[in-house]
Amino acid sequence: MGAGRLIRRILRLAPIAALAGLGVWTLADVLVVDRAGWNLGLLGLAVVALDLSILGFAEWGAWPRRLGVFLFGGAFFGARLVDLGVEPVGAFAYITLAIVYVELRILSDRFGPVYEGSLSTDARSAIDAALVRQSLRLLVAASLAVFLPILAADLAIAGAVPLRSFTTALLASAGIVAVVVLLALLPVLRRRSAGVGSGDRVQKA
C-alpha cells in the first residue's frame, strides 16, 4: 500500500475512531446509572446521539454529526450529575476527546482531498510536513487541555486557591469568563489594530 493511500485511510479512520471512543465511553457510563426514570432517558439520549452520528457519516451533512456529539455530551454529563458524580480527570479527558474528534474531522476534511490526487514530490513533502506539524500541535493542545485543568484542580484541593468558598468561586468564574471573551475577541482586535478590512482581501495578481 502506498504511503499516500495509508495516510488517506488514517485520515478517514481517525475521526471515526475518536467518535467511536466517545460513544463507547458515554454508553458505558449511561448503562451503569441506577436511578429509575433517568437511566432509560439517558440511554435513549445516547442511542439518538449514536444514530445521528451514524447518519452524519452516511453523507447526511454536518448537522446530525454536530448534534450527535452534543447529545453524547449531554448523556455523559447527565449521567455524571444525576448519579455517578463528576470525576474531574475523566470529565477533562472526555471533553478533550470530543474536541479532538472535531479537530480530527476538520483535519480529515482539509487534508483528505489533497491526498486523493497524485502529487509532485515537492508538493507532497510540503503537505506531509504540514500534516505532521498539525498533528503535533493537536497533540500538544490535547495534552494541555487535560493536564492544565488537573493542575488547577490539584491547586484547588490543596488549598492554594480557596475555590470552595462561594465568593472566590465567583471571582474565579469571572476571571474565566474574561479570558474566554478576550480569546474570542482576539482575532477581531488584532485585525482592527492591523487595519485590515474585508476590502483588502482581493488582490490582483
Partner: peptide, 13 residues
C-alpha cells in the same frame, strides 16, 4: 466548583 473547572479544556484549545 468541579463543573466550573470543566471550562478549562476548551479554553486550553
Amino acid at each position: 466548583w468541579q463543573v466550573v473547572l470543566l471550562a478549562l479544556p476548551p479554553l486550553a484549545f
